[in-house]
Design a protein around this nucleic acid. Structure first.
Lengths: 344, 344
DNA sequence: CTGAAAGCGCTTACAG
DNA sequence: CTGAAAGCGCTTACAG
């Protein structure tokens, strides 16, 4: 390994002081265009790459924030833990972080205020949020452009950002193949909120899966639970009243336990295959008692970790926009549940 | 965020100089036991965590090596790529690394020589290797104790190490549940090398899975392919000659494509469910043509990444032995294959 | 056995 | 507009 090129090499070569070179390279302060150009050119010519450790040690703390809209406690907690853990690993890089959780129904105003108050002082932002807040983020980012990373939201709606995404179609396809494998022929979907981007894509993927992979299995209908426990139960009930011979159910939201409750009450849990989404205590119980056959874990912890990593990359590489990072959906069944139970 | 505790805080509190604190904390040089203990205790009490950026900046380059025994090209390459990528992210941390691949059959002597030549100058080591080399590593580590991280080998055989492991029983259980879900009743196992730790644990897990999860499915027998393509084919043939009504096969090694070849020749590929292990081009093809129903991917890339992370943690935390890191087996089917095809 | 001092590669007030 | 100097938190010869 050859000795790395340092900023002082660049400075000497360009005939300026280290401080001037530094300012030229990180684009701070004012200086003669000619000087800046010359410095940058010699840096490139010499193959200079800044030493991150040294940068971290000398600069003042970087300020970043994460704005997340609160989901069901146990799902959300994985996300927040992932953010926290990941930020902590960057502690050595001198970053100050703040995680702000707000209620998706009532908290939009709160989230907006948070943004107004802080945006100007932030170096980077992670958001997982609804349309209202998204709009706000877009608006602010037009004035002060900082790197933004979105977590599994309607990423198309936020401009100039990097993102962490789950392939919602794949989730649907996986569910279709799984139910077919379990011998299901007549299936239904209990979806989350109607018209939601993710759920619609889940459904589309499921349809595709039925056609391309699991011929012989059909989709009888889709019910929308609006992410409400009681309503999910009612949907299930309604579905069975209309189609008593259902033998497979795909629940696109975290409400599968509610669906399982209905099945257990009616003694149908062994006859109907059910696959859900996400993983928390209730889900685990259902996997254990056999009423839930599998769940597709959209590793929130990993999503959060990736978001932080991407943000840090953006920040240290001159605010580039990075390609989306995809988190793979993980199929959790009774046999591999133990790999997930200690997911801190 | 409170200001982080620095080594100078620790030094002041313990009533020593910064240099003494540093030496105590990274276990270098000789010093009064009493002093060292006191310093370490105050560091713990204060919640001191060394600033890695500063460490990286001040110490001379760390020398680490990875010793891996070459498996089938495409499986191995994920491992090596994972090591390389991960080491590169530590470049700013001032580490020099070397990756040494050797042939598991003929290369033990070569590997030994490599160890003799370098061991003394290394700060850390990653090994994925057979028993002979393992013995050697153990022996050397008695003289010069450096942190060692093992990747999915018979970790019990290397003492004083951290490790990255795959739960081999879970892989077996997963296979059992999967085949049962596919309606298989009479199954066989085509295993890798006989008497190999991992394969035996795969088989044990499979048996357990059949009992606890997949009642009604039976295991007719186990054939050993010795990790040889031709032999795997022959085993399959032999199995079918003895049991023409086999309807499920678990291949514990990467040789599933060979098993699928037999099935396709005999036109049995739609009637027999097959689940294999690992993922590379041949495996992908079989998933696509439907002769292979699923494979259990033991994410080598991730294993390697984790190994490097663990090693770096060991090195920066005063050579502690860290608890094993478990890599989850991932079930790959046609429906989620796309998540794996761009696995660089 | 212990400590003072230099230095790792950067950034950032501050002074010219 | 440019540079000298201090300082970030650590490690490591070197001197006591």
């Amino acid at each position: 390994m050859n000795k790395a090129v340092t900023i002082s090499d660049v400075a000497t070569q360009a005939g300026v002081s280290v401080s001037t070179a530094s300012k030229a390279l990180c684009g701070k302060g004012r200086m003669a265009d000619e000087t800046r150009t010359r410095i940058i050119e010699t840096a490139v010519a010499l193959g200079y790459r800044p030493n991150r450790a040294a940068q971290a040690l000398s600069r003042k703390p970087m300020k970043v924030a994460a704005l997340v809209d609160r989901g069901p406690e146990e799902v959300q907690s994985h996300l927040v833990r992932g953010l926290r853990d990941s930020f902590e690993t960057y502690a050595a890089f001198n970053v100050d972080y703040d995680i702000f959780e707000f209620d998706p129904i009532s908290g939009s105003a709160e989230a907006k205020k948070y943004l107004y108050d802080r945006y100007a002082s932030l170096d980077g932002l992670i958001v997982q949020c609804d349309d209202v807040v998204t709009e706000e983020v877009n608006r602010m980012n037009e004035f002060v452009n900082i790197p933004i990373v979105t977590i599994v939201s309607d990423s198309e709606k936020i401009r100039s950002v990097s993102s962490v995404v789950i392939n919602a179609e794949t989730v649907g396809k996986l569910a279709a193949q799984f139910l077919a494998m379990n011998g299901a022929k007549k299936t239904v979907i209990i979806a989350g909120r109607s018209e939601t981007y993710i759920h619609e894509r889940n459904i589309a993927g499921y349809r595709e899966g039925l056609e391309t992979i699991a011929g012989g299995t059909s989709l009888l209908g889709v019910w929308y639970s609006d992410d409400d426990w009681k309503k999910a139960y009612d949907c299930t009930k309604d579905a069975f009243e209309k189609n008593p011979d259902i033998d497979g159910i795909f629940v696109t939201s975290y409400l599968a336990p509610s669906v399982c409750d209905y099945l257990k009450e009616k003694g149908l849990e062994k006859k109907v295959a059910v696959i859900g989404v996400d993983l928390y205590d209730e889900t685990e119980k259902c996997l254990r008692d056999g009423s839930l056959n599998a769940t597709i874990y959209q590793n929130q912890y990993l999503q959060a970790q990736n978001a932080v990593d991407v943000l840090m990359d953006c920040l240290s590489e001159g605010y580039r926009i990075l390609p989306p990072v995809r988190v793979k959906p993980e199929l959790v069944m009774l046999s591999n549940l133990e790999c997930y139970t200690h997911r801190k």
